[in-house]
């Protein structure tokens, strides 16, 4: 007994060091899996508040650009509205509703308080949380395309797993036909992502547009992602399809969070079949 105690006293700093290192490593391993740890993330109230109030460097430089982007989006939406009114008058409502992707979504706006794009697990912090009806696994987009998926929430803030995250897997398809695959990221550069699992019979060319598929309940169908930059053909399969994002992920500010109103119904139905 005496020996054990003296052993602990002698190596107390080393033991302390070991214990703390083990804690740090377990946090690290947790953070590399999709289901992240509950408290080591910047959606909590303190970090959210600090990012919100002391946002010194990040965003002031691009205000003009962001305003331009927002007003462009506004005019686009206004144009859509007038179209809709016209068709309503000429009793052609069904044409618009069923041909353009018919789904039931609501959008909540938010702005990005912290943006990362050089790590392998990039996470964004946004200034809306549970009290604004933001929950885990909601899609995040802006006018130029997909941003990511909500990964953690607190009452007033949320973190978003960026499309630039090694755990990110987003269901996507070619715009010109309905062949679909998965968008992933290999952590090399914030301008390109990879398009995987595309079947051989899909005929692709450099410059083809990739959009979200709408098979998952996270994103609506038809949200822009990027264009094919290059690809290889090996063993009669597509490999290394590089997709250039429409979004400049280093300079994003205003985003929309998408809620699928039918999500619970769809999920319940799918679970019944399993």
């Amino acid at each position: 007994m005496h020996q054990i105690i003296s052993f602990f006293i002698r190596y107390k700093y080393f033991l302390l060091f070991l214990v703390l290192e083990l804690i740090a490593f377990s946090f690290t391993i947790q953070s590399h899996s999709f289901h992240r740890s509950r408290f080591i993330n910047s959606s909590n109230i303190i970090t959210g508040f600090i990012y919100d109030k002391f946002n010194l460097v990040a965003n002031h430089s691009n205000v003009k650009e962001h305003n331009l982007q927002l007003s462009e989006e506004n005019s686009k939406l206004k144009n859509l509205l007038t179209q809709k009114n016209d068709t309503a008058n000429t009793v052609k409502i069904t044409v618009l509703d069923s041909l353009i992707y018919k789904q039931n979504f609501t959008y909540i706006n938010a702005s990005i308080k912290n943006n990362e794009y050089v790590k392998s697990n990039n996470i964004l912090t946004i200034n809306k949380g549970e009290k604004d009806s933001i929950y885990k696994d909601l899609g995040v987009i802006n006018s130029k395309g997909v941003i990511g998926i909500v990964s953690n929430t607190s009452s007033s803030y949320a973190t978003v797993m960026s499309i630039l995250n090694e755990n990110s897997k987003i269901n996507a398809r070619l715009k010109k036909n309905h062949h679909y695959g998965t968008i992933t990221w290999n952590a090399k550069g914030y301008k390109t992502v990879q398009f995987e699992d595309l079947p051989r019979q899909a005929d692709i060319k450099v410059g083809d547009t990739i959009i979200t598929d709408g098979k998952s309940t996270i994103f609506p169908e038809g949200i822009l992602i990027g264009t094919i930059e290059n690809f290889e053909l090996a063993n009669n399969n597509y490999q290394n399809i590089e997709v250039t994002l429409f979004n400049d992920m280093s300079a994003i500010k205003h985003v929309n969070i998408v809620t699928n109103l039918d999500k619970i119904e769809i999920k319940a139905l799918e679970n019944n079949n399993e």
Partner: peptide
């Protein structure tokens, strides 16, 4: 915690 990197910086600094 601020940069969502798990325990990476904690392990290195320790």
């Amino acid at each position: 915690i601020f940069s969502n990197s798990g325990g990476v910086n904690a392990a290195a600094t320790l």
